[in-house]
């Protein structure tokens, strides 16, 4: 049964407070009624998901982070039967061919670059909730 009262949970995994602020603001400008959580690195995200049982509807994942990078997070979550269905969108400053291929081969659902221009960045960010929460069918809602 779908719980229509339940709010979407979006987990951002991002070490830059400036980027985290921009991303949160852009996402909430599109869908206000969601729970937006922020993990400052990969290790904190893994702790939240695997140890504390958080099951986000969408994970926005940076690649270059201290303690545990985005590739490591991706590999852990996509190889775990309890978490492999959770959509993960890589949000990275890197458009490097190796990084993009590696992310897709590790199972990212999508790869988006962070443009330098703020307006471009915001346009990309706004497309994320519109696509992933409004158009894509969110698999985690099947649990309710």
């Amino acid at each position: 049964m779908i719980d229509t009262e339940r709010k979407y949970v979006v987990l951002l995994v991002e070490d830059s407070p400036d980027h985290a602020f921009l991303i949160k603001r852009a996402i909430l400008a599109v869908i206000q009624d969601l729970n937006f959580l922020w993990a400052k690195d990969g290790a904190e995200a893994i702790e939240l998901i695997l140890k504390r049982g958080l099951k986000p509807d969408l994970i926005l994942l940076d690649i270059k982070m201290p303690r545990m990078n985005g590739f490591e997070v991706l590999e852990i979550l996509k190889n775990n039967k309890e978490t492999n269905y959770i959509p993960i969108v890589i949000l990275s400053t890197s458009a490097n061919e190796k990084d993009v291929s590696r992310a897709y081969l590790l199972g990212t659902n999508c790869y988006i670059t962070k443009p330098v221009e703020i307006a471009d960045f915001q346009s990309k960010l706004r497309s994320i909730p519109l696509y992933w929460l409004r158009t894509n069918t969110t698999p985690s809602f099947s649990e309710f």
Partner: peptide
């Protein structure tokens, strides 16, 4: 939704 979740687990990138 159970089938859709299964598709994501198998590696589907998105489902519409």
């Amino acid at each position: 939704l159970r089938r859709i979740k299964g598709c994501f687990s198998l590696g589907a990138n998105s489902c519409v």
